[in-house]
């Protein structure tokens, strides 16, 4: 069990980030069903402590690459929530001007190299970002988030090799929620993530992805290693997703009581609240007021997004190139 020797501001920020992700995703779950949100949406509910626990060790100078299930990573890395919501609604005021959508939210000024619609798309990019940090000597670390599904992609395996060969300041965070789309990891992943890390000569860490403190501490070790120039490592995060692969997936491949148990017993927000209030770090009122502030923020973000103008014809042709 990890200690609670964490800066109180970091804890407060992290709680707020986790709550923001939860409310953001729960609200999307509701709004998506109304048909107002176009395209595909993949929700991160249940996995909040992973993205937040990792990113609490990072600054804007560090880089992350995310997945198609990227909202949580974006919020954890500090991307503006209102602009994210507007993006998901395809509005001109969106973080990507309405041209990316849920799967392509990015904010390079925050070191957020993008959600990614391609499974396994991120790890090679993170090798490059880590190379930039190394050669530009800016002290930054690059972190690839990817799922157990992407852990079978050639791009991921090649990237583990390249990162070790080049001794990059990179961390590979496997968010193992047990399912790649509708197929279980128990079927699709041969061997173990630990053995895979060992196969590339890479340090391996694992942690409970529903426990912010565990993720924070374990990922912190991997990140500090990378920052000290000691090379890449893998962080295997065990967690569960509460919704389907995408919105509209009825999860007929999973027993409903499994999900119910996850929600009941392994809610990272509940765990955080219990531990910090029991330890006297926060009062219930303090956390309640964070919850209220977040509810207001999400409500405002949805209202603004719905009211915001759509992109127009000239936007179709802009920003394909810097110059052409």
């Amino acid at each position: 069990m990890s200690t609670l020797q964490i800066n109180r501001d970091v804890m407060a920020r992290s709680y707020r980030a986790m709550r923001t992700i939860r409310d953001f995703e729960e609200r999307l779950h509701i709004e998506f069903a109304t048909g107002e949100i176009p395209g595909f949406v993949h929700l991160y509910c249940g996995e909040e402590a992973s993205g937040v626990g990792v990113c609490a060790n990072l600054t804007d100078n560090d880089t992350i690459a995310s997945t198609h299930r990227g909202h949580g990573h974006c919020i954890a890395k500090g991307v503006d929530v209102g602009a994210m919501m507007a993006e998901i609604y395809g509005r001109k005021s969106g973080i990507c001007g309405g041209k990316g959508g849920s799967m392509h939210i990015a904010d390079l000024s925050r070191g957020m190299l993008g959600a990614n619609g391609i499974v396994g798309g991120g790890p090679p990019l993170i090798c490059g970002a880590a190379l930039s940090h190394k050669l530009l000597k800016d002290g930054g670390v690059a972190v690839a988030f990817y799922g157990d599904g992407a852990s079978n992609e050639g791009t991921t395996l090649e990237s583990l090799n390249l990162a070790s060969v080049w001794h990059l300041p990179a961390v590979f965070v496997v968010e193992d929620n047990g399912y790649g789309e509708a197929t279980a990891a128990s079927y699709a992943v041969a061997g173990t993530q630990k053995a895979r890390a060992a196969g590339f000569g890479m340090e391996y860490f694992e942690c409970d992805g529903t426990d912010f403190f565990d993720v924070y501490e374990v990922a912190g070790k991997a990140i500090e290693r990378a920052r000290r120039g000691e090379g890449p490592s893998m962080v295997h995060v065990h967690l569960s997703r509460w919704y389907g692969h995408f919105e509209g997936d009825s999860m007929s491949y999973r027993k409903s009581e499994d999900v119910a148990a996850e929600r009941r017993d392994r809610d990272c927000l509940v765990k955080f609240r219990n531990r910090t209030t029991e330890a006297g770090l926060f009062t219930a009122d303090e956390l309640d007021s964070v919850d209220q502030a977040v509810r207001d923020e999400i409500e405002l973000s949805v209202r603004n997004a719905k009211a915001a103008p759509m992109p127009e014809a000239p936007d179709l042709l802009s920003d394909v190139y810097v110059s052409y």
Partner: peptide, 20 residues
């Protein structure tokens, strides 16, 4: 690089987006 086009071509893209 290793003989590993997906990783290093992707790394080139990631490096380009982050300052090299």
């Amino acid at each position: 690089t290793p003989i590993s086009e997906a990783s290093y071509i992707g790394a080139a893209a990631g490096a380009a987006a982050t300052g090299l």
